[in-house]
Design a protein around this nucleic acid. Sequence first.
DNA 1: AATGAATGAGTTTTCATTCAT
DNA 2: TATGAATGAAAACTCATTCAT
Lengths: 195, 195, 195, 195
Amino acid sequence: MADPYETRHKINKAALDLFAEQGVEATTTKHIAQAAGIAEGTIYRHYVSKDDLVWDLFSTNYVGFADRLDALAAEHTGLKFKLLVVIRHFCELFDNDPALYRFLLLVQHRNLHRMKAGTRTPLLAIRDLIEQAIRDGEIPDQDLDLATAFVIGIVVQPATFAVYGRLPRPMVDHVPSIADAAFLSLGAHAKADHA
Amino acid sequence: MADPYETRHKINKAALDLFAEQGVEATTTKHIAQAAGIAEGTIYRHYVSKDDLVWDLFSTNYVGFADRLDALAAEHTGLKFKLLVVIRHFCELFDNDPALYRFLLLVQHRNLHRMKAGTRTPLLAIRDLIEQAIRDGEIPDQDLDLATAFVIGIVVQPATFAVYGRLPRPMVDHVPSIADAAFLSLGAHAKADHA
Amino acid sequence: MADPYETRHKINKAALDLFAEQGVEATTTKHIAQAAGIAEGTIYRHYVSKDDLVWDLFSTNYVGFADRLDALAAEHTGLKFKLLVVIRHFCELFDNDPALYRFLLLVQHRNLHRMKAGTRTPLLAIRDLIEQAIRDGEIPDQDLDLATAFVIGIVVQPATFAVYGRLPRPMVDHVPSIADAAFLSLGAHAKADHA
Amino acid sequence: MADPYETRHKINKAALDLFAEQGVEATTTKHIAQAAGIAEGTIYRHYVSKDDLVWDLFSTNYVGFADRLDALAAEHTGLKFKLLVVIRHFCELFDNDPALYRFLLLVQHRNLHRMKAGTRTPLLAIRDLIEQAIRDGEIPDQDLDLATAFVIGIVVQPATFAVYGRLPRPMVDHVPSIADAAFLSLGAHAKADHA
DNA sequence: AATGAATGAGTTTTCATTCAT
DNA sequence: TATGAATGAAAACTCATTCAT
């Protein structure tokens, strides 16, 4: 009997790649089945619908990513270092699995509102990290959500540029510059570097 | 019968709203026709295809927006002021026509590569502005594309937050903070403010 | 432009015939389209779904039939005559449009419970007619619903036999016998015949 | 592993319930397997196909029922009594196993033509009983098939009403009334009761 | 220019059945 | 015998586009 775990994995891999490459709508279940080397009907033994597949791919990876960011932030001290490891992790994700990044970028708008309130998201991980820094006096008091948006924007936009060839890869090469910009955008003094 | 110019306008308005709200693929020509109060076939009197409609909407507004940014930048001196007016214009667009803003954000990547080489885009407007600042010694020498990504990210991400209710509107209220963050992220000294 | 009324009629006719002949499930939208001489997609310009088509066909004809029975009953006096015209009408329907009868027979179980309470049905028409006869002392007092079931059964079962070739057609030939049986089953005296 | 006889029984029970409730077409093999608590493939260890399952269920029970009706009729004398016991048996089947009753009713027409010529059916049991009564002069000479239809209709329709809640259960309570109506519908005189 | 019914190719989804374990 | 993952043919349904009016 075929290993259902393996089949599911093949579906996920094929779907993610195709979704990233041509978008969710443009990817047919037929394409996915062909790329995964399985029958079209088999997809429906693992997922209720194409939409369910998209949602599963999104939520699993989105939440998994948030959890890793939380863990990383917890392992380090000080805004500067926290930002650095978090941003490095983000860039590594991008470099190692560009398709996953592109997929998350593509579908987040349609899927974010489905997450049940209270779920850990990368966004919350960043927000908590900034909140802590304000509390610790590392950066001036400021609008927390706005500050979160700045950091997210500074990290995500270069990756988006990289996707479309407007910035050279690997993203890891840009980590120091990105971390610096994020740090500065929050109103931190360069000196905080050495704190 | 009806003023053809007005019909076209109704199509544009309906399409833009729907595209912004639910994405291009999820919006059917039937939806557009219904929302515009016209017959489905009428769309094809004004546009060759749905894709043509998307492209027209995108290119017209994208280039127009870039031109206004260029003009604004030209009217002011110094990175700080240029950033301020450019960012204010971004935020005003968002406040005045959120559908247009979201639409441009959604489809830009799919459509950017179709633009004739050399066409002015908002990205280029920002990029030129930063290049000038580096040349003028206002900010340290740095990777131009990365810096552009920072500024774009710092501007766009708060707007995205606003769309999802994570940041209060109007966006114009956030202009000073956003401009500051953009300015700082480029490595400018706060003092440059008063320069 | 094609006449939508005519197209809808072609769909209805083709669908009814096929449904009656081979059942609803066994009839595909492709079959219907072919039989109607239209494209498969055209069905969906007239009906939301195959199920909607079935429901429309059922409810329209079922209620229409009830209305005609009501009208007929109102035009005549005395249980005997009312039964006679009502049963004759039923048999004429059967003879003139056996497909319609067979269709109603096939789908009633799945669709009866969808009718909103208070809708006129053939069943109610018969029931009212019997209730009146009891009130008028034409037949002994008895369980109204049970009596209704008797009459319905006496009328419907022969038709069902006729469908499957267990009784010769036309059904109209059996009207006197059926009416007599119905009359007698209610406990009426033969004398009532001449009342 | 499990007792094969028990497994087959579980399949039969689950299938019968589901077929009765939602029809044969609407019941999937998956549903049956779930309801029976077995694997989908197991059905095919016991039946060649879904259709084979339906046929087996139908023919076994239909013929068994006919045989019991025959036996009951043989044990009694006179139309009145024969009708009474036969109708009681009908009603008891309904009360004891409504799913089986409904199933037989639903699928009989689709399956009757498959029965070998000469097989005993409930229809024949009723028909023979009426034929005997005519021969014995208990009821007037009349169309035998039509008369059979009357009796079947008078018995079956109340049961259908009971399914839809239009008549209170148990059906056994209605046996005297139903038998009376059947008796009368055949043109028997009420006095024959006491003959 | 405008209409809107019709199209048909293409999509998602279903489900009885098979087969390796 | 039992399992249940996989199959694939066929189903219902969608939708950008066409075209007669």
